Computed example of a mutant assay.
Amino acid sequence: MAFDSNIKLGVLGGGQLGRMLIQSAIDFNLDVHIIDPDENAPCKHIATSFTVGKLTDYDSVMAFGKDKDVLTIEIENVNTKALKDLRDAGKKVYPQPEIIKLIQNKLHQKQFYAKNGIPTADFKATATKAAVAELKEMLPFVNKLETEGYDGRGVSVIRTEADLDKAFDKPSFVEKLVDFEKELAVIVARNEAGEVTTFPTVEMVFHPVHNLVEYLISPASISPEVEEKAQTLAKTVVNKLEMVGLLAIEMFLTKDGEILVNEIAPRTHNSGHQTIEGNVTSQFEQHLRAVLNWPLGNTETVVPAAMVNLLGEDGYTGEAQYEGMDKVLAQKGVHIHLYGKKLTKPFRKMGHATISDHDIAQLKEKINFVKEHLKIKA
């Protein structure tokens, strides 16, 4: 697709990912139209147009898409039948509806990896809590819902038989608990012409209780061999899918140096926020380039960067107040991104901080400084 700033781009989802996508689209004079069920979604005041509508409702998505040229997503929980019908009516829809539908179901994701020889942890499908209990010889394992899981929800770690009461009594699967060295992520982009680029591998650190990314460092502290392996695997996954758009791939680095795919997301992702300041091209610009079939951007690291999620403090619900912001803003190389959410609640993603420094030791000190001093309360 030749560059045209008059393209009407429709995005299903108006959260912080959509907000940062719009911020990137402004650089290209692109009009971005948003549909979201929340009338106060973060995109509301900066979108070219904002429609309140349910993303899983066929008629709402059809009505929204009928006058758009290109449609994309910032969340997977959307009506893929409507997106298929819009594509049949001549709209460009990326990522493709079939791929969104596949990724909506975590079991189908795992089956896709197995079918295509993509390394992943051993797993077995389970329909009931009783079926999970029958697999106790696989302990320890993780029980994951097929659908409805995000940001740590729909995941239950079961280490011993005593934990089996935490199993899900609905369609799910068990996955062998991986004894990993590090959790990594690679963001890969592919455009309609088949051009593929990857961002440098990042290292993620998760909150010990809430299974959310607490912070990440880019590039990851891994050997060149592991970096090569992760990059190659990311390209393999996106090419096997033949997907157009941006794909975030979460991976485990095992104690014996193997890379296993954990989960994928067909959109911009928490593991790529640091690219706004840390890389030549941000993940948000790359998403636009991919779905509009423009040449993909340079993904090289400009400066090592960390991303710290700014979460609502436990025990506070109400209008957000930011304690310690002045101290954090006084730190060299700290850039704050707030998501336009007026109300905070425990562990809600309210924003992120990007921290850049050529010295990795100082980068880690600044991560701890931000975590210690910036508190979001009510």
Results as ranks from 00 to 15, higher is better:
residue 6 N to G: 09
residue 12 L to T: 06
residue 12 L to F: 05
residue 12 L to Q: 05
residue 15 G to A: 04
residue 15 G to C: 03
residue 21 L to H: 03
residue 32 V to N: 01
residue 33 H to C: 10
residue 34 I to A: 04
residue 41 A to K: 01
residue 44 K to C: 04
residue 45 H to D: 15
residue 49 S to H: 11
residue 51 T to A: 11
residue 52 V to G: 11
residue 52 V to F: 01
residue 63 A to I: 00
residue 64 F to E: 11
residue 65 G to A: 13
residue 79 N to P: 12
residue 79 N to T: 00
residue 82 A to Y: 10
residue 82 A to L: 11
residue 83 L to Y: 14
residue 83 L to D: 13
residue 87 R to K: 15
residue 87 R to V: 00
residue 91 K to G: 10
residue 92 K to N: 10
residue 95 P to R: 06
residue 95 P to V: 01
residue 100 I to D: 13
residue 101 K to N: 13
residue 102 L to Q: 12
residue 103 I to R: 04
residue 103 I to W: 06
residue 119 P to T: 01
residue 123 F to L: 05
residue 127 A to L: 15
residue 128 T to E: 12
residue 129 K to R: 07
residue 134 E to T: 11
residue 135 L to S: 09
residue 144 K to R: 12
residue 145 L to I: 06
residue 148 E to L: 15
residue 149 G to D: 08
residue 152 G to I: 08
residue 159 R to P: 00
residue 169 D to E: 07
residue 173 F to P: 10
residue 174 V to W: 07
residue 174 V to H: 10
residue 175 E to K: 11
residue 179 D to G: 08
residue 180 F to K: 12
residue 181 E to K: 15
residue 195 E to F: 10
residue 195 E to H: 08
residue 199 F to Y: 09
residue 205 V to R: 15
residue 210 H to I: 00
residue 215 Y to T: 03
residue 223 S to T: 15
residue 223 S to N: 02
residue 224 P to C: 14
residue 226 V to N: 08
residue 234 A to Q: 06
residue 235 K to S: 09
residue 240 K to I: 07
residue 244 V to Y: 13
residue 245 G to A: 09
residue 247 L to T: 02
residue 247 L to D: 04
residue 248 A to I: 02
residue 248 A to L: 07
residue 251 M to K: 11
residue 255 K to G: 08
residue 260 L to H: 07
residue 261 V to P: 04
residue 264 I to A: 04
residue 267 R to G: 01
residue 275 T to V: 03
residue 276 I to D: 02
residue 278 G to I: 01
residue 280 V to K: 11
residue 288 L to M: 02
residue 288 L to K: 02
residue 293 N to E: 10
residue 295 P to V: 05
residue 295 P to Q: 06
residue 300 E to F: 05
residue 305 A to Q: 03
residue 307 M to Q: 06
residue 311 L to T: 03
residue 314 D to Q: 13
residue 315 G to V: 08
residue 315 G to P: 07
residue 318 G to E: 14
residue 323 E to R: 14
residue 327 K to H: 09
residue 334 V to D: 02
residue 335 H to A: 05
residue 338 L to I: 04
residue 340 G to E: 11
residue 348 R to Y: 06
residue 350 M to T: 02
residue 355 I to P: 12
residue 355 I to T: 12
residue 356 S to W: 03
residue 357 D to H: 13
residue 358 H to T: 14
residue 360 I to Q: 10
residue 367 I to V: 05
residue 368 N to Q: 14
residue 372 E to C: 03
residue 373 H to D: 12
residue 377 K to Q: 15
